[in-house]
Design a protein around this nucleic acid. Structure first.
Length: 230
DNA sequence: ACGATAATAT
DNA sequence: AATATTATCG
């Protein structure tokens, strides 16, 4: 009996994985891409969440790259900033107008937009800014103008916070934008009639694709491009 | 879900 | 350096 025990123990011991084969405890079990795709809470190991991260660019040797690839996903995991292109914003406004003020909350807006990769947080943040914009517009136009609902104004005046080069490119495609104020807000000229609210109920959804671009500072941003007719 | 504010980009 | 845009926190 004692020999059996000894033999069993030997086999067991030999089958133990080597330390190199063990997954480090500090390593996330989920790859960054998968985490981003599933929009799960980021296992962010960064203790310092303020200040720009150093992001040194080490010389990539083959071995170093392979070794880095094994454990770097954990710290490098950051969802890229979402860029609200005019097209994406339009879909947002369409959704808000369609839902009506009372139902236009981030969750429902996001659902109606049905843009892949768009999170509720993205919508909430944008909605907040959009409401501020509407309030400002009401304060200015409210004195002499007739009673207009916020939703109507939303449909009328397209706000967009983009004023960098991406805007220039977008503006080239959509020439009815011009600049206004110091805030870089953009309004659409009344030439083109706004889409009929009632028609939007059946609007086709799900025609967006993701695209990952790199900007000047090396930071990656996520832009969602419409593939439909906008 | 909302509003405030921190982080980040231009 | 200022300001605009987006993310995160309470």
């Amino acid at each position: 009996m004692r020999e059996d025990d000894s033999n069993w123990f030997s086999k067991w011991e030999e089958q133990l994985p080597s330390p190199e084969e063990l997954t480090p405890l500090s390593q996330t079990l989920i790859t960054p891409d998968l985490a981003i795709a599933l929009d799960i809470p980021i296992p962010n190991p960064n203790h310092h969440h303020h200040h720009q991260h150093p992001d040194p660019s080490p010389p990539p040797s083959a071995a170093a790259t392979a070794a880095a690839a094994a454990d770097e996903p954990a710290r490098t995991l950051k969802r890229p900033r979402l860029v609200w292109t005019p097209q994406l914003h339009k879909r947002f406004v369409d959704a808000v107008v369609h839902l009506g003020i009372k139902n236009a909350v981030p969750k429902t807006i996001m659902q109606l937009m049905s843009v892949d990769g768009l999170t509720r947080e993205n919508v909430a943040s944008h909605l907040q800014k959009y409401r501020l914009y509407l309030k400002r517009m009401q304060g200015i136009g409210g004195g002499g103008g007739g009673p207009v609902s916020a939703a109507d104004m939303a449909a009328e005046r397209l706000f967009s916070g983009v004023h960098h080069h991406q805007m220039a490119a977008a503006a080239a495609q959509q020439p009815y934008y011009n600049q206004m104020g110091h805030y870089g807000f953009l309004v659409r000229q009344p030439h083109q009639p706004v889409m009929d609210v009632n028609r939007m109920v059946g609007m086709d959804l799900g025609g967006y694709s993701e695209d990952l671009e790199e900007t000047g500072s090396g930071r990656k941003v996520l832009t969602l491009f419409p593939t439909g007719d906008e």
